[in-house]
Design a protein around this nucleic acid. Structure first.
Lengths: 232, 232
DNA sequence: GTCATTATTGTCAGGATGACAATAAAGGAG
DNA sequence: CTCCTTTATTGTCATCCTGACAATAATGAC
């Protein structure tokens, strides 16, 4: 059984929606709860915020446990304050969105109970990892709502911020095709590759966010691709 | 002196940035604090969130005190959790952005200690009401940061949401010139009127958000303007 | 009727986008 | 070496959106 919070006392928690992009798919990290409430349901990682730390600090700490040594990018998503969102007592949760490259997530997931679920649909939220498929009803608390809101936020911001670059394996040596697969993962639809290159070039190259290096990929199939790097 | 909160206990508060648009200017409602902390500084209205209510409820209640009988539009802005943001103790504040028409704000401001400050600049936040000019240092807590973030949010969302309409005196009978002055208030720059009409027409009319009525304005200077109405 | 005022429509050039074709630069098979 | 497959990159249209700005329309004031 879960512990009970003292009555008439609000607590503040953080939940972290750690996302990653792999092979054109967007994935979210979840772990299965062992104890009530919501035993056997899947939940985003999170914890209470202590007196000495900010919500940002707490979210970074949660992330640091998941991906040690990574300064993964965090963005505040929304604050959920439903009165009955946690049956143990009154918990207000500040949800954060985190973006990390798949390679780093995969290597940190070895001894961890976390699993990475692919976002399959989103009119009705569907998450899949191998043969395991989750619906929103399999998620703990209001974490389904958090995930839906997180996807929406990613889709909205991908066009005018640098969030897509947070998913790149190496921000100092990436090809436009790699970046394109990140875009497709976030947007959930293909983008013509010719148009994509042109779009990246006037949106980011000319504004100095990325720079084309003299290096090229080697060894792969087909024509070698130019390597780009982020400027800051 | 302000009361002191019990140690090692987090509290949750809401602050409401009530904005309005008048004569092409964007205004924010502030009241001057009488007691410490931040005595004589200007602050956004707000209060603690109680055990029985959500943050949204609390924000609506604060708004209801300011503008009784109004269902003004509220949007969650950001959650501020700095450890020292309130010297009385640890308070996490969920900031909300509210949009209301100037006429309603003005009529509710009669017996109230609230004053409506015009946003003059924003590289360095400047607020003005009559001969009184405030800088960020005259604001209590982190409310300057909240206001800057609120403006940024308004500017970002005005292009692809319906927030501009929340400032209209009568959503069922407005002219495009009225709407244009709201846009100019939010964006802080003029927009050519010909282009504005065209933009509104393909962005909102064709998508069914607003509808042109058969009515026209009467009695004013110049050619009568077509009246529009919101659909929902 | 003429004028000042505001509303509305039209025109033109430039920039961004989607669809899609054409070209370029590898590696592999023969 | 030549042809083929593969991936990257560039080019070509038609279309839409936008800013600048001119032209027209409908009022009230005089």
């Amino acid at each position: 059984m879960g512990e009970t919070l003292p009555q008439s006392q609000l607590a503040v928690a953080v939940d972290v929606m750690l996302t990653t992009a792999c092979e054109g798919e967007l994935r979210v990290l979840l772990s299965q709860r062992k104890a009530a409430p919501y035993a056997h349901c899947w939940a985003l990682p999170g914890r209470m915020v202590t007196y000495q730390e900010t919500a940002e600090n707490a979210a970074h700490a949660v992330l640091e446990e998941l991906l040690p040594g990574t300064g993964a990018a965090l963005e505040q998503l929304y604050t959920f304050s439903g009165v009955n969102r946690d049956p143990r007592g009154r918990v207000v949760s500040v949800a954060y969105l985190a973006m990390a490259p798949w390679e780093r997530v995969a290597s940190s997931m070895a001894g961890s109970p976390m699993r990475a679920f692919t976002l399959v649909e989103n009119s009705r939220l569907l998450l899949r990892d191998g043969s395991l498929t989750l619906q929103e009803s399999h998620l703990a608390f209001d974490h389904g709502e958090m995930i839906r809101m997180g996807i929406e936020r990613l889709r909205g911001k991908v066009e005018y911020t640098d969030i897509a670059f947070r998913y790149l394996r190496d921000p100092d040596a990436f090809t436009l095709a790699e970046l394109q697969r990140v875009y497709e993962a976030i947007l959930g639809r293909p983008t013509g590759s010719g148009n994509f290159q042109r779009m990246i070039r006037n949106r980011y190259l000319e504004r100095g966010l990325i720079r084309q290096t003299a290096r090229k990929t080697r060894g792969g199939q087909g024509r070698p691709a130019a390597l780009f790097e982020m400027v800051n």
